[in-house]
């Protein structure tokens, strides 16, 4: 049977420390707010196609209209940044073994031990999620204050020789963090389930 050993192992449930669970839950909640209000802002002038472009269904949006969505998006950006920043600092200091290391790529390529490979894949996924979330903050800041952080916007000028203005590249990049994080989230949930099952879920959530 291929049930992961962590699921069938006996013994009391070892929950993650409260700070881990709190940061994790709050991050998910704030991420949903940022993504849904961001999609409502998207609808004011779709990144792809402009005024004639397709809009996101109201089911996935938050705010009701542009000004309402901006209320949510800019109301929660500070909490989102503070939560992510503190959490990353604590992870680096106390739980850096959860983050990817150079050895993980080697494990993925060479190891025949399936659970070990899953663990390496999960650490890479987890680290990529933190990187994508940080990138959403940086690209968002560039769009929020392009006059003050003009040098941040200029980082997105790499495609100008090919005829893509830095502003459009910045908008595409900021938007792309939503599908990227959705994909990583699916992998993260799937791998966590394979690795720890309901036990891991309980240790992380409840």
């Amino acid at each position: 049977m291929s049930v992961p050993s962590a699921v069938s192992a006996p013994g009391p449930l070892r929950r993650n420390p409260l700070w881990t669970r709190a940061f994790h839950a709050f991050n998910l909640l704030v991420l949903l707010v940022m993504a849904a209000s961001g999609l409502q802002i998207y609808n004011a002038n779709p990144v792809f196609g402009g005024r004639e472009g397709a809009t996101v269904p109201a089911l996935f949006t938050l705010g009701g209209w542009l000004a309402g969505a901006r209320d949510w998006h800019f109301g929660f950006m500070g909490l989102y940044a503070a939560n992510l920043g503190l959490w990353t600092c604590l992870l680096l200091q106390r739980r850096h073994r959860r983050l990817a290391a150079a050895g993980d790529l080697g494990t993925l390529r060479a190891s025949g031990n399936a659970p070990k490979r899953r663990l390496a894949a999960h650490r890479i996924t987890y680290t990529l999620m933190l990187i994508v979330l940080a990138f959403s903050l940086i690209s968002g800041l560039a769009m929020y204050k392009p006059a003050q952080f003009w040098w941040l916007v200029s980082l997105f000028a790499f495609a100008e020789p090919a005829g893509h203005p830095s502003w459009q590249v910045l908008r595409v990049c900021h938007f792309a963090t939503i599908p990227a994080i959705a994909l990583l989230l699916a992998v993260h949930v799937g791998l966590s389930w394979r690795i720890g099952g309901l036990r891991l879920l309980r240790a992380m959530v409840f």
Binding site: L32, A36, A58, L59, F60, T61, L62, G63, G64, A67, G68, A69, R70, D71, W72, F74, G75, F76, G78
Partner: peptide, 19 residues
């Protein structure tokens, strides 16, 4: 996500608290 619809009415409150 669905709950977003019910939260739309709170936009002004969120804005007033954070702006």
């Amino acid at each position: 996500v669905l709950g977003g619809c019910a939260l739309d009415g709170w936009s002004g409150t969120v804005g007033a608290a954070t702006q």
